[in-house]
């Protein structure tokens, strides 16, 4: 997925692209080779039979999909969906106001805030999550401080539970939401809000009828960028959830490695992909957005 926080594809630009289509050939070839073909292969794989030791046999079967209907896996899907929804909701609730107010700051302060949001990207996600473990573990920084302050008698058990995984997801994905919202709010024409106020709207009405619809593409991009990974970031669940919290991403990863069941992993991936697509489609329908901000 490539990101370009600078803008959306406008109708005008699309038309221009049509004229110089030869320039696009490399992009089409790239997409075909690295996106479309692997996708086809994955769908194909999901209908094949697992080989005895490693790999698969070219024998058509629906076994892999039947297996997903097992309550064990269904529950995993439900769990993942729930977690993705919570994480997306919190990200929206925190990220939208954050990005909104950041975009309204004066230039100097805005640049500092932007830098603070970007800095985490300079370090590996894994290292940062391990950092949280140092903070939250039984003999970690947080417990130490609380104990010294006399607020608790014995260390709190903070790690390796569902809440911690939710926290980790939100932590890992919040910057994406902030940047998406920021990029659309930054482009807002504030004269429109003045016009809304002038025509009789109070601050809340102006926000709901003008600002929110105008920044919806940014919000939608943020939702896409936080919802989809929330279903699949297996290492967050691995690191912060111990072995207790299993998400779809974890199952896929386990089936690929320990389980050595490529076709089943592929089937899980296909179902996951369909589910996320459905959710995004529903969201688009509800919010009436047809373009993604900052996402191409």
């Amino acid at each position: 997925m490539s990101m370009d926080f600078s803008g959306t594809v406008s109708k005008g630009r699309k038309r221009k692209r049509g004229r110089s289509w030869t320039l696009l050939v490399p992009i089409y070839i790239f997409t075909l080779l690295f996106v479309f073909l692997p996708l086809i292969y994955m769908v194909y794989l999901s209908f094949m039979t697992k080989a005895e030791v490693w790999g698969f046999e070219n024998r058509f079967t629906l076994e892999n999909y039947k297996k997903i209907l097992d309550p064990l896996y269904l529950r995993t899907f439900l769990n993942s969906l729930k977690l993705a929804l919570i994480s997306t909701l919190v990200n929206t609730a925190v990220g939208y106001p954050y990005g909104y107010f950041m975009a309204k700051l004066e230039k100097k302060k805005r640049d500092i805030m932007l830098l603070l949001v970007m800095i985490p990207f300079w370090t590996s996600e894994l290292i940062r999550l391990n950092g949280w473990i140092i903070v939250f573990r039984s003999k970690g920084v947080l417990n130490l401080i609380l104990e010294k302050a006399g607020l608790i008698d014995k260390p709190l058990k903070l790690l390796y539970n569902y809440q911690m995984v939710v926290f980790g997801m939100i932590y890992a994905l919040l910057p994406f939401m902030i940047l998406c919202v920021y990029s659309s709010v930054e482009k807002m024409d504030w004269k429109l809000v003045e016009a809304a106020r002038d025509l009789g709207g109070n601050a809340a009405q102006a926000f709901l009828t003008v600002t929110l619809p105008m920044t919806m593409p940014g919000l939608l991009s943020g939702v896409v960028l936080t919802f989809i990974p929330s279903m699949g970031l297996f290492f967050v669940a691995d690191l912060l959830g111990g072995n207790k919290i299993v998400l779809v991403g974890n199952v896929i990863q386990q089936q690929l490695t320990k389980g050595r069941n490529l076709p089943f992993a592929a089937a899980l991936s296909v179902v996951l992909m369909i589910l996320t697509s459905l959710f995004i489609a529903a969201y688009r329908r509800i919010t009436k957005t047809d373009q993604l901000e900052g996402l191409i």
Partner: peptide
């Protein structure tokens, strides 16, 4: 009870 016609119209594009 005062309304403005803005310089660049400020029509709601949505």
């Amino acid at each position: 009870s005062v309304n403005t016609v803005f310089q660049n119209y400020a029509l709601f594009p949505n």
